[in-house]
Amino acid sequence: MLELRLVQGSLLKKVIEAIKDLVTDANFDCSATGLSLQAMDSSHVALVALLLRSEGFEHYRCDRNISMGMNLNNMSKMLKCAGNDDIITIKGDDGGDTITFMFESPNQDKISDFEMKLMDIDSEHLGIPEAEYHAIVKMPSSEFSRICKDLSSIGDTVVISVTKEGVKFTTRGDIGTANIVCRQNKTIDKPDEATIIEMNEPVSLTFALRYLNSFTKATSLSESVTISLSSDLPVVIEYKIADMGYIRFYLAPKIED
């Protein structure tokens, strides 16, 4: 038996919209800790890891660990039928082949339920080791999104370099080159607008802008984004989900051929 009641249903709507273009099908793993997901894109270049902790739900019942395979496009179709202020409850039975989404309007005058078919997904689960990163940049998520969008009109790849001067985003294309440097800016009264750079050593890595632009679909989930870089690891782009958990995107770098 599974019953998860999420008062801020819009969070789940936003999470699915943020990942559905990157990942088609995924297993949602439910345990006493919370609802989690790990899935790679079809080319095995990017990975999304989601955690919604049990404490973030108003009611959380998960009698035994369960993995539910869902098509994210179908899930999105159903969740789009929920209002932004609706309370969403996810219900499932052990061993069942369907899951039910129940939507309640804030004043309880409209209650809908949508039953979705589950699917068997044979997914590869990667072991992601805890790592020390060479540099961690925290910046406004809207700023990061703007930079990725702007640079993708000029080039296909971005070089992200962190030095003590700041974080530099560089691209190159047929029409020319672009450099955007963001310096550390600790705005004390507005922490969400701050850019904070923690650097153990300088690092410079190249990434496909197409994937970074896809990750920025999570921008509305969090005011700030954290970019963790190491020269020998995929970058981690993390959006915290208020009081509940996170959505993390991992992207393997490009190397000179």
Binding site: H44, G127, I255
Partner: peptide, 14 residues
Amino acid sequence: MYKQQKLSAFFGCK
């Protein structure tokens, strides 16, 4: 030119 690496080059299967 750049070559795209895969995640499996960094992370092992669980």
